[in-house]
Design a binder for these strands. Structure first.
Lengths: 116, 116
DNA sequence: CCATTATTTAACCTATAAGTTAATTAACTT
DNA sequence: AAGTTAATTAACTTATAGGTTAAATAATGG
């Protein structure tokens, strides 16, 4: 894997299991086994996924007795959001196009109705 | 690679070369060789990167004589932006915390100055 | 038709991602 | 001290990502 921050972030989030873990952590902190519970894979595998997320700074772990409480860390997501900034105008444009296309279509349909 | 849309998008953007290509395409359409020019790798390698981006729906290619004009397609990025929505409050929260921390710090500094 | 330019496909190499099971570490419980 | 629970580390397998060079395809221009 690359060592730049964005690459790590994108790469970490490219896996659906890891995105599911992130989604779970929105609801609050959780231990490794709690996080692993919904998945049809070994605890070890989930532990590795957590390591990847941690490596990307997307989660952090705190020790508490024999548990490791995982929590979501959002800063890399903010950087992702910042990266997106450059591209935002593109889908606004596309939406504008789609909008005007729809408006156009509606207009023509109205015209046709008038002709009938 | 996974076959869901988000995984493809994240995965495609996890590579710095591919993000650089995207950044280039913000400036306008370009042929494969034009896109390959800045990179220290074979044209074939870039062509493959383009294939990945195309597979993720992030670019499209049009034929024009012997050239393939590549253009940015933003819809997958919009989906990524939508995905981020869930997490936005987290970094706003962090920013709020950071803000109040900074405010606190400033306040204390002022207090100290008054004491001097 | 032949040569040139642009791009893709094929065949290959190497590193690594994502999973497995078995063994280890660490802290709590009795 | 011994047993239990939580999590990680180690060793291994398999698939795929990202690069290479050489060959094939496609369109243009003499």
């Amino acid at each position: 894997m690359q060592d730049d921050v964005l690459s790590r972030t994108f790469s970490a989030l490219a896996d659906p299991t890891r995105r599911a873990i992130m989604a779970r952590l929105v609801l609050g902190e959780a231990s490794v086994s709690e996080l692993a519970e919904p998945f049809d894979m070994s605890l070890v595998a989930v532990s590795k996924h957590l390591k990847v997320l941690e490596g990307a700074g997307l989660i952090s772990k705190g020790r508490e007795a024999q548990w490791r409480r995982c929590r979501l860390e959002a800063m890399p997501l903010k950087e992702l959001d910042d990266w997106l900034e450059t591209y935002r105008r593109f889908w606004s444009e596309s939406l504008d196009k789609l909008e005007s296309y729809a408006a156009n279509l509606k207009q023509r349909r109205n015209d046709n109705e008038r002709d009938e």
